[in-house]
């Protein structure tokens, strides 16, 4: 049995969520709900008791909440401004080293061997020859000094550079009318973004931070850095890029995080 962290956090592993407790106590939870509803209708104060037991995990409630979250994906896509640029900052505001975030702790990062690493391409891409790191270093670089915003609430200003994602997708003959760009990472993390966000002028495949190659914890050798998504959408240690029209749940969306996660 693993012990759960006292304060649940995105930065700590909290998968799998232990469903057994909820199953074992199913009868009790249902009783609490019925009572809770009666109580809740009486006073606001009593309503607060309802939160003591978390109804969010109840399958019907979770289904409803995820349906709203999916609807919010569409709402976010609808208000997305493809050419609107995120604020940029000066090099003096850059935080170095950047702040670490992943679903595990920084000491558990498994470094990628840059010499052996290759970027695989898949899906609706004409030229699927893999790329070595040296080849990627040959591409024109774009620098972004942008704000990283974590879904948890913290933020910092980072200085990222690497090939522009739109230029890269164009060069490899990707179908730019496809719906999604899907990333598989060296730690088996998966993430995908909508094509409109991938084609945004401030979306790059970053290889450098503050002018030096990205260090291991922050995605060496290649990571996504886009100004229009929350931190967790910016896949690190990218192994495969796939262009596709098929939606597949990604690491965080499976956990119940919003998929679109635009900012």
């Amino acid at each position: 049995m693993s012990i759960r962290p006292v304060t649940p956090s995105l930065l700590r592993p909290h998968k799998p969520i232990d469903q057994s407790v909820s199953k074992q106590n199913r009868r009790r939870i249902e009783t609490i709900n019925r009572r809770g509803v009666l109580r809740g209708t009486l006073t606001l104060g009593a309503l607060a008791l309802l939160t003591g037991c978390d109804v969010s995990e109840e399958p019907s409630v979770q289904d409803a909440l995820r349906a709203v979250s999916a609807w919010n994906d569409g709402a976010q896509a609808a208000i997305f401004r493809p050419d609107h640029l995120a604020p940029t900052f000066s090099p003096s505001q850059v935080v170095n080293p950047p702040r670490f975030n992943a679903y595990y702790d920084i000491q558990d990062v498994k470094p990628v061997d840059g010499a052996a690493w290759k970027l695989e391409l898949a899906g609706l891409i004409k030229d699927q020859r893999p790329w070595t790191l040296q080849q990627i270093y040959q591409l024109p670089e774009q620098e972004l000094i942008i704000r990283h915003i974590c879904v948890e609430g913290w933020d910092y200003i980072g200085q990222w550079s690497g090939p522009n994602l739109r230029a890269f997708l164009t060069r490899i003959g990707a179908d730019l009318t496809a719906k999604y760009v899907y990333f598989v990472c060296n730690d088996d993390f998966t993430e995908s973004i909508d094509m409109a966000s991938a084609l945004h002028p401030q979306s790059i495949l970053a290889t450098k931070y503050a002018g030096a190659p990205i260090t291991d914890p922050f995605g060496f050798p290649l990571r996504l850095r886009t100004a229009v998504k929350l931190g967790y959408k910016n896949a690190k240690w990218i192994r495969t890029i796939e262009v596709t029209n098929t939606f597949r749940p990604t690491f965080w969306s499976k956990q119940g995080e919003n998929w679109f996660a635009g900012i």
């Binding site: 956090s9 003591g52 969010s56 909440l65 119940g256």
Partner: peptide, 30 residues
């Protein structure tokens, strides 16, 4: 609670909606 503004202030678990942050977010954006 996931990233507090004030070190001295955490809302107790029995007062918050959603056991995990993503549930809190789901409720908030609903």
């Amino acid at each position: 609670n996931d990233d507090v503004l004030f070190g001295w202030l955490h809302f107790p678990d029995f007062l918050v909606i959603g056991k995990w942050a993503q549930y809190g977010l789901q409720w908030h954006f609903f």
